[in-house]
Design a protein around this nucleic acid. Structure first.
Lengths: 356, 356
DNA sequence: ATTGGCATTGCAAACGTTACCAGAAAATCC
DNA sequence: GGATTTTCTGGTAACGTTTGCAATGCCAAT
């Protein structure tokens, strides 16, 4: 494992000169440049990035990515886009899956210790201590960027880190409005909701708030029986949630699902119970992952620009690292992808017929 | 941003002593230990891992993970399991998405430069140059582990790196046999195959070879019209592939899909054409991702132990790093998850009736 | 011939840490 | 009480780079 010293000796020059050749600096004669290049080739020399980082101060060319759950294709797509941009700029991504909760703090400490160049947060919940670590990072000049849904009622993070860190957001409330308005335009008024959020902070969640607000704006009052919360974010969660909804209330004609995985589970439950979608029941969802194109029927879903989100997050960090001042907030547009899971409200409610 | 020197000065001790406290070494009096601990707290000191790595030689506590496509939940689940084990042992994962091909080489160089402690490969194709880099890594004592499907006809990688590197594999050929045997047991004999592999090296692929061999062993001869290759690995690929198959041959009663995404696309095509699964046509698939439980109908699929695979890969690397000698090959069992996408062969073939 | 400027090179100090070695102080033994 | 061990502490050399500064040699201009 050869070092710069070996290269220098092999080429018969000093270490400094060899270093200059490697970094393509000026003031090296063509002749010695050749000699050194030769030595590098012969010795299979690769510079030691660890040593480089040490002497250059912070410049490890590493970005930390905290993501809630990579096995969820929603996060995976953001991650992939983020990584692609980092790669293009010769940066490396440290992947941190935070799902289990207590991991975030340890990861942030690790970022500090590793002298990381930038931090991106996607969907990882943050507590008091975590925020303190982020502040330390920011204070040291390490840029931080986070994915966010617009419309959080109270967002301690944004309040505290606000303008120091970058935000890439999309307007979830608006997305929900589109979905609900569409259902209403097809005649639905008894609309259920399947949420993964905890019951007691349900209305903090922008998707839930968007759901509620859009209903109210359409003059539809909220019926607690139509709202299912605390679901696990998985197809199984959606399956169980839909079952619960059908048990609590057989007269709803449409369902708003928190995201595509939930919707897929809900579809499976409908099939199980012989409920035809969209003839008997309509479903709208959020995320518009590729899966939603291939369900039966394909899902009408609010499209969230995941790839763009990942890309902007990486680009924000890289711009900040370069000393530029990118916009502190990117708002990305959402829209409703119309497919076959929504139909007109059935003339007579078919669900009730299934009641024993 | 405080250093060890700051801590030492603040505590009124030497750098060496401060270092000893941090690393929990013996021969430090309780009194000074307290003083240093105090200083660490007051200064928010975090050790610089870059400097530590430099002085300790290779010990960066970083693992490199080359993965073909994280947005595919198959890979994502392996990745997640790998990362979880790494986290438990205080190792960090550098995520590298190689899909686009030429990225692998650059990533391997980066691994060398970053003095990484171990490398894991999942599904990334390797060329001549890439193998050379892997050899350099192995020669430097950096362990390498790869996910593999048993049954590659010729595997240059295994031949070259063979016993130096670790392998975590499962018996795909056996999995295919299970799937085909099951179809045959339900009376099917005209069985189509949807493959993502290129036509001219189709039989190098273990899944294709398993398919073929199992058919032959059941005394069924291969019909080229029933074999679709060169599909894109996506639901769209499966959708198009199924369309092509139905066009080429209307008398097949069952289909073997390369993996779940392909199967999901195929299901969508069937729905499009009014073909009922499993009444008119049966489908078996491989991977058994969570999605396969929630399709309509749920897919019968060969279960591949993804989580275990990711975990064993990480554990192999960590064991090697610790100087132990773990088994050089882990063979994981596969089995067939029976669900509703397979039925008995229809008494009269319904597909033919659709021909104009 | 002397000077000034410029291209080219090497020396040595840093970056933040660990680890070896040598003292000093304290504790133990005969 | 002296010799020997044990516990504690500080100095210093590494690790592999980059970089500012000084030194060299060469050429043209005075």
């Amino acid at each position: 494992m050869s070092t710069l010293k070996d290269v220098a000796e092999h080429a018969g020059v000093s270490i400094s000169t060899a270093s200059r050749v490697i970094n393509g600096k000026e003031y090296v004669s063509e002749e010695t440049r050749q000699k050194v290049a030769q030595a590098i080739r012969e010795l299979d020399y690769q510079p030691n990035l660890i040593a480089q980082s040490l002497v250059k101060g912070r410049e490890t060319r590493q970005l930390g990515l905290l993501v809630y759950d990579i096995s969820n294709s929603y996060f995976a797509e953001i991650t992939m886009a983020f990584e692609a941009i980092a790669y293009q700029h010769d940066y490396t991504v440290i992947l941190c899956n935070t799902a289990e909760g207590t991991r975030t703090l340890k990861y942030l400490d690790m970022f500090i210790q590793r002298q990381i160049d930038g931090v991106a947060l996607i969907g990882s919940p943050l507590g008091q201590e975590e925020i303190r670590r982020l502040q330390i990072l920011l204070q040291r000049g390490v840029p931080v960027v986070m994915a966010r849904e617009k419309g959080w009622f109270a967002n301690p993070l944004a309040d505290i880190l606000g303008n120091q860190s970058g935000i890439v957001e999309f307007d979830t409330v608006e997305g929900c409005r589109m979905a609900i308005d569409y259902l209403v335009s097809r005649g639905h008024r008894r609309i259920g909701g399947l949420f993964t959020v905890e019951r007691n902070c349900l209305w903090d969640d922008p998707r839930a708030r968007g759901f509620r607000q859009a209903l109210e704006d359409n003059g539809i009052e909220i019926d607690d029986n139509l709202i299912i919360s605390d679901l696990k974010t998985s197809q199984a969660g959606g399956f169980l949630g839909m079952g619960q909804l059908l048990q609590q209330s057989r007269d709803c004609t449409a369902v708003f699902a928190y995201n595509d995985v939930i919707a897929i589970g809900a579809l499976a439950q409908c099939r199980e119970q012989g409920i035809r979608v969209p003839d008997d029941l309509s479903i709208v969802s959020m995320d518009d992952t590729e899966d939603s194109l291939y369900t039966n029927p394909p899902l009408t879903s609010v499209r969230i620009p995941r790839r763009e989100q990942g890309e902007f997050m990486a680009e924000y960090l890289l711009a900040r690292i370069r000393g530029k001042t990118p916009p502190s907030c990117y708002s990305l547009p959402v829209y409703l992808a119309l497919r076959q899971s929504v139909g007109n409200v059935p003339s007579k409610n078919v669900l009730t017929k299934n009641v024993p």
